[in-house]
Design a protein around this nucleic acid. Structure first.
Lengths: 212, 212
DNA sequence: ATAGGAAGTACCCGTAAGGGTAATAGATAG
DNA sequence: CTATCTATTACCCTTACGGGTACTTCCTAT
């Protein structure tokens, strides 16, 4: 069985050399490239066809976040590991959305780095415990729904409004008069502290009052 | 230092006994309860105050997904590990949103189960590789934005509409006439295949044409 | 028993919204 | 160099929307 080809993009020269040393003789892996910037990225993707790319985020000519997008567009099968000091939500989620397959922080021990790369090559999704925590937290946060004390009827009507139904259609759907629909929507706008339908729809979706 | 108190909720009797055996003599842990349903959940939370609860999802009287919500509301410090055969998006994300701190599948080896519980007790967020993959995939999926070929002006106007601005306010913001705003919105509605502002706002937010 | 909230109906009124049509300037492609 | 496309502006017309106010019925919680 052939070895897993590995390339590194890391601008800190000392760290890059340490990584080269660490990763140069792991069984099953072959370090086939190591770069301090992304100028040769195109060439690397077309000529070397690496199985795994390990990316620093803060690089001189391009962020690793932009690079992972390019890599995944050009070589979808290349698995990408983010390797960075950044642990803020913004950079974590952007990296993942752009296609990163793993995300480990630079304070990770050499042993764990090697384990993470092995896990990555086996199709796994290695990440530092802190990253896993952030992700779980993100879901919990996103599911929190403020309560505007809408009645069931009001929720029903708001849902229809979000679907793009006109007042008239809502009246037909609910089998009530047009005036009643207006009254309900008036109350809904008051409760949501908005002044028109479009604003209500935006708030309903943003605050998950209605299913997205 | 005192031991970590652990309780198990698992309705399969044989599996529960296996878990009891596995977890009864791990150093640092003490298995203080093991139940085949959630009838005694209230009591367990108020009297035993477990540090860790391990929950099966498919239980006779309540789902583990509902249980994790209750546990987290009543005892936020109790760390909850989902332990289940289910690997569908729906149950994974609901569990996490309700407050689960870890999610491992039942095909996990005994050694890995013990490691996961240790990681959980140290504040980590253990999950099966497959779960990690699902989560990363979820982010990638959510960030995909269909292209409706809106011009920059149209995007700008759509954003203002989503903010709840009236046609008149948009005209003022963009320093163009009201009629032009109308025309642009007409074009936007056509491009998005919608018929009114509320529907356009809903589509813009759902399809992430504008930042949520 | 009764007060308050939820739901429904009905009116008026003014403006905002949405559809149709057309003209102008700038860019771009053949 | 002209034809075409895009972005922009403009006008007319009808309807939908949003605010105000008022009344009835049902239900539930005190």
């Amino acid at each position: 069985m052939s070895k897993t080809n590995l390339v590194i993009f890391e601008d800190n020269e000392r760290l890059r050399q340490s990584l080269e040393l660490l990763l140069s003789d792991i069984s099953g892996f072959e370090l086939v490239g190591s770069y301090g910037n992304f100028t040769q990225l195109d060439e690397v993707l077309s000529k070397i066809c690496p199985n795994i790319a390990m990316l620093d985020i803060d690089m001189p000519d391009m962020t690793g976040i932009a690079a992972v997008k390019i890599i995944k567009e050009r070589s979808p099968l290349c698995r990408v590991m983010m390797f960075t000091v950044f642990d803020d939500d913004e950079r974590i989620f952007q990296s993942i959305c752009n296609g990163a397959d793993g995300y480990i922080l630079k304070n990770t021990s050499p042993l764990k780095i090697v384990q993470a790369l092995q896990e990555l090559s086996e199709g796994g999704t290695p990440m530092s415990p802190f990253i896993a925590q952030k992700i779980f937290q993100h879901f919990r946060q996103a599911s929190k729904t403020p309560d505007y004390h809408l009645t069931t009827r009001e929720q029903e009507i708001l849902q229809l409004l979000v679907k793009g139904h006109s007042y008239k259609m809502i009246a037909a759907d609910c089998a009530i008069s047009l005036d009643t629909v207006k009254k309900h929507l008036k109350n809904i706008y008051t409760k949501l502290h908005v002044s028109c339908g479009t604003e209500a729809v935006a708030k309903a979706l943003r605050d998950r009052i209605v299913p997205i």
